[in-house]
């Protein structure tokens, strides 16, 4: 019996998803995600105070955001936090993944240990680190114990250390996830590639640069994108650890949105800030995705 190869048109037809098959989930998504988001965004073009009537004021809220020193400073803090956490988290995460990649008994204990903080709620992490950074906290106690009293300081109370203290807390919490994604990427690389390169005389550094890094590209894409987007939306840890202070030194856009809405009752202005943040996250994510995807090797 001879098998008849299906025609390309037949394959295309077979792979096509019928429109009615996706209509229901798409409709539901539109109803519970797209519609409320767009409807909420419309308030950015009003003067609504959260209660009572409102009137349309066009782009006035967006113009106010652009000249608001507090908003600009919050945006700066947000970008600094997003960039620094992404960078440090990836460097540490990749180092940990390389160190813990081999299947040993010790590594099987260490991996979950590094991952454990990611299972905690950000608020809990914030509370724990608030105590660690407090003037009488663990960090200063350790510094004193190793005779580094000159380095003791109120870490969250000084403008020049508060933002980095928060950044390190975020890295501590999420570096385990970055590590796991890198380990998954490393384990997908065929050992034969390294063996062949080693036989050809390539050193460890060369193999890392020419084999490991290019083949880790998909993992890098995920590991850069997720922490960066998370960094742009940082809220819980900041609220708990510094409440945006001292002054506005650690205030992020997300925290400012909350304050504008619930402390000042400026719901429309806070919605305008939220729209700006959404656009920022979307644009940053698209640029990153395009740049990182272009480095990925075809499967």
């Amino acid at each position: 019996m001879t098998a008849v190869a299906p025609s390309p048109a037949g394959i295309r037809r077979a792979l096509q998803v019928p429109w009615w098959f996706v209509a229901l989930p798409l409709g539901l998504y539109g109803l519970v995600v797209i519609y409320p988001s767009l409807a909420g965004a419309l308030y950015a073009f009003t003067d609504w105070s959260g209660i009572g009537a409102f009137r349309w004021i066009g782009l006035a809220n967006f113009r106010a955001v652009m000249i608001d020193d507090e908003a600009v400073s919050s945006l700066g803090n947000t970008v600094v936090l997003a960039l620094s956490t992404t960078l440090i988290q990836n460097m540490l995460g990749l180092s940990l993944a390389l160190a813990l990649n081999r299947r040993t008994r010790l590594n099987s204990v260490l991996r979950p240990l590094f991952l454990a903080p990611a299972l905690l709620a950000p608020v809990v992490v914030g509370v724990i680190w608030q105590y660690i950074y407090s003037p009488e906290g663990a960090l200063n106690a350790i510094l004193s114990a190793v005779h580094l009293d000159a380095l003791r300081r109120p870490w969250l109370g000084l403008a020049d250390t508060a933002i980095w203290s928060v950044a390190l807390t975020v890295v501590w919490q999420f570096v385990g996830i970055t590590m796991v994604i890198y380990i998954a990427g490393l384990q997908a690389i065929a050992p034969e590639l390294h063996e062949a390169a080693a036989i050809d005389g390539s050193g460890a550094l060369r193999r890392f640069r020419d084999i490991t890094l290019p083949l880790l590209a998909p993992a890098i894409t995920v590991n850069v994108l997720l922490p960066f987007i998370g960094g742009l939306k940082l809220f819980d840890q900041i609220l708990v650890m510094t409440a945006g202070g001292p002054g506005y030194a650690t205030q992020t856009v997300a925290l400012m949105i909350y304050r504008q809405a619930f402390t000042f009752g400026a719901f429309a202005y806070s919605t305008a800030l939220a729209v700006v943040l959404t656009v920022l996250v979307a644009v940053a994510a698209m640029i990153q995705l395009a740049a990182l995807r272009s480095r990925e090797m075809p499967a």
Binding site: Y133, P135, E136, P154, P246
Partner: peptide, 12 residues
């Protein structure tokens, strides 16, 4: 105020 005041909460 102590030099650590900026790191202290009201409860502290």
């Amino acid at each position: 105020f102590s030099k650590d005041a900026s790191g202290n909460s009201n409860d502290d």
